[in-house]
Design a protein around this nucleic acid. Sequence first.
DNA 1: GGCGCAACCTATCGATCGGTAGATTAGCCG
DNA 2: CGGCTAATCTACCGATCGATAGGTTGCGCC
Lengths: 195, 195
Amino acid sequence: MNAATDSTPRAQRRLAPEVRRRQIVLEAARLISAAGFNAVSLADIADACGIRKPSVLHHFPSMADLLAAVLAHRDELSYPVRREVEDFADPAAVNEVFRSTVEHNQQQRELVRLYVVLRAEALDVGHPAHGYFLEREQRALDGFARALSWKPKPMLAARELYSFWTGLEALWVADPTVDMLEVWDAFAERFFTIS
Amino acid sequence: MNAATDSTPRAQRRLAPEVRRRQIVLEAARLISAAGFNAVSLADIADACGIRKPSVLHHFPSMADLLAAVLAHRDELSYPVRREVEDFADPAAVNEVFRSTVEHNQQQRELVRLYVVLRAEALDVGHPAHGYFLEREQRALDGFARALSWKPKPMLAARELYSFWTGLEALWVADPTVDMLEVWDAFAERFFTIS
DNA sequence: GGCGCAACCTATCGATCGGTAGATTAGCCG
DNA sequence: CGGCTAATCTACCGATCGATAGGTTGCGCC
């Protein structure tokens, strides 16, 4: 059961700080996306990395800092939509940009699940990610409204689209057999038509 | 600071079991809807009721049992839609039934938030409410599909509607200033029109 | 008015929580 | 090859977790 010699300090393999940090962030993201931040402990993350609790805290001062790093990591990987969207005034082109993002997200189960799970958890004002999602949600809605400026009420349309978008991701996370693109197209066929 | 005589057992007011049970369920629902099941402790609930931890466990054998009672309580209070919906084949009538439910839910912040928060938390297979939401989601989709049997692809339409529905509730929980009815109408105007 | 049921209490359990202190040693650099 | 930096370790902290054991007492019922 014990790989090393008994009752002696483990000859632990050392990793370069940036490599270890990356490993910790990846494992934390995996665990948190599965069960939520509140359900993951420092010990869980340390175990997943094959190190001890203080070693994790050596790289990240506290659990909250680690969560921040996970969110930052998530932002880096997220599909860069916003810039493009703003440039389009044509509904069909806007649809295509959103649609390709859905297509992209369908290959990123863990990342989408991380978002869905943390977003709900972070509704609590005391949650360490509360502010993050507060700001992020506002920015997303503003971006949507800008991309939908050809609609009579852009912010209303943005809320409608954002509701459907996040709801679809939540449904897909709960049931991976759902084809997000198919449902998206059903919605978009009406939503992006100027009647 | 101590209301009763010092160092003597508190002369605790007793309540009839059904009254106390009801109080515990209500307080637990309130706390869980605010922060999620994982973030609420037995002590939190006991404090909210003005009793001790073992007294809570006297009425509910474990935290999981208490959560089950909270979910059962939630089901009792939920708006009875399904029966009615099945009787309508007219899209406008179906819309009206859904719409009135949105209207009703807009007066039930805590209940809606309880649903939104627990649904995400329960994505984890190990969560005590995982099975509850698995079954509930399936039943909801089936009910929606039946109410949308006039659509070319009822289950696809059901997924679309359910995505929008739950997404709208999540958006509203995060930002109460959103008028759910307004967003609903924007969506429904297109969704319930046979083009 | 006193007796018994049970709602409530105190005290405590072992496990686990996030986090700290300080020793050990791997691995690079001169 | 010897010495320094720092990645990792062991050991431990006080708090809190859900749960159990067993005592106390409010209160309804005869």
